[in-house]
């Protein structure tokens, strides 16, 4: 019992010394150090490769700075009283219900300001972005729109291109599984649905995602600006192999792409099997 009390006292004094606490905190943070120092790692997203990608980045960092600002105020207002106003016997706290007219005015002004400045700022930019980019799905008639139909299934992505005849659901359609080839610099417009459960088409480098639901067709689009290979992921839990439902997006320069498309369309005709009803999914493009 005595030993126990003694040890407790020891521990207390050790603990209450600020240095111990600080070094403990540091040690814990250092738990991450080996991982942090090792090379060849990524700490952020891959650079964006779609024309509206910058909008996401700008908005993200705008919110981040606003949050860093607000949170700093919060932290400072925690720290100051925590140090300055610690308990001292005999001292009395400042008696204040915060119900005076002055306080009410202050609270109203601050909350109005946070809303009108911070929230409204973000809102206005977000609305503009939505209308100009994410929701501004290009119409078929627009020049240069490249259309792709998507059928998601457990656990693969099926993509369908129109092929040489410019129509979906014909023998010369190009079918790709877990691979998607599109031309650089043209708006790519998707319509997609699912065969079984909900999946979500997520192309991080292009900064968008969209759910494809069974029984319904959803649209989404992006415009690649850099040729290259990018990862396609499935972002909606879809069962056992959800984590392995990935594919690759190839963005080709337009002349390479045209060659590829012509070849692929011919291959499509060759491989076309009128008996295979499974492979004949397609729908009329919805306006």
């Amino acid at each position: 019992m005595k030993l126990h009390t003694k040890m407790m006292q020891r521990l207390t004094s050790l603990w209450t010394s600020g240095i111990t606490r600080a070094s403990l905190g540091l040690a814990i943070l250092c738990g991450m150090a080996p991982e942090a120092l090792a090379g060849g790692k990524r700490w952020g997203p891959v650079p964006f490769a779609s024309d509206f990608g910058y909008r996401f980045e700008d908005l993200f960092w705008l919110i981040t700075w606003l949050c860093v600002g607000s949170f700093s105020i919060v932290v400072i207002m925690i720290l100051i009283p925590s140090v300055r106003d610690r308990y001292k016997p005999g001292r009395k706290a400042h008696f204040d219900h915060g119900a005076s007219l002055k306080d009410k005015r202050l609270a109203t002004v601050i909350s109005a300001a946070t809303f009108l400045v911070l929230d409204a700022w973000v809102l206005v930019i977000a609305m503009t972005d939505l209308r100009e980019a994410w929701w501004n799905i290009p119409e078929s008639e627009e020049a240069g729109v490249y259309e792709v139909e998507v059928l998601a299934q457990q656990w693969a992505w099926n993509f369908r291109h129109k092929g040489a005849d410019g129509k979906f659901g014909t023998a010369d359609d190009i079918l790709q599984m877990n691979e998607l080839t599109v031309p650089n610099g043209r708006s790519v417009s998707f319509q997609g649905t699912s065969k079984d459960v909900i999946h979500s088409l997520f192309i991080p480098a292009m900064r968008f995602k969209k759910d494809f639901n069974p029984g319904d067709i959803n649209s989404v689009w992006f415009k690649p600006i850099t040729a290259g290979n990018y990862t396609i992921l499935c972002a909606e839990l879809c069962g056992y192999a959800h984590y392995q439902m990935f594919g690759e997006l190839h963005v080709l320069e337009s002349d390479t792409f045209d060659n590829w498309a012509a070849d692929a369309s011919e291959l499509g005709v060759a491989a076309y099997d009128s008996e295979d009803t499974e492979a004949r999914w397609a729908w009329d493009w919805k306006e």
């Binding site: 207002m77 308990y87 001292r91 809303f115």
Partner: peptide
């Protein structure tokens, strides 16, 4: 975020100039 902000405002002012135990 407006009511949330009012809550933060109130909490932070509650500890401000207190006699904190």
């Amino acid at each position: 975020s407006v009511p949330a902000e009012i809550l933060f405002f109130s909490w932070l002012h509650t500890i401000w100039r207190g006699n904190i135990r």
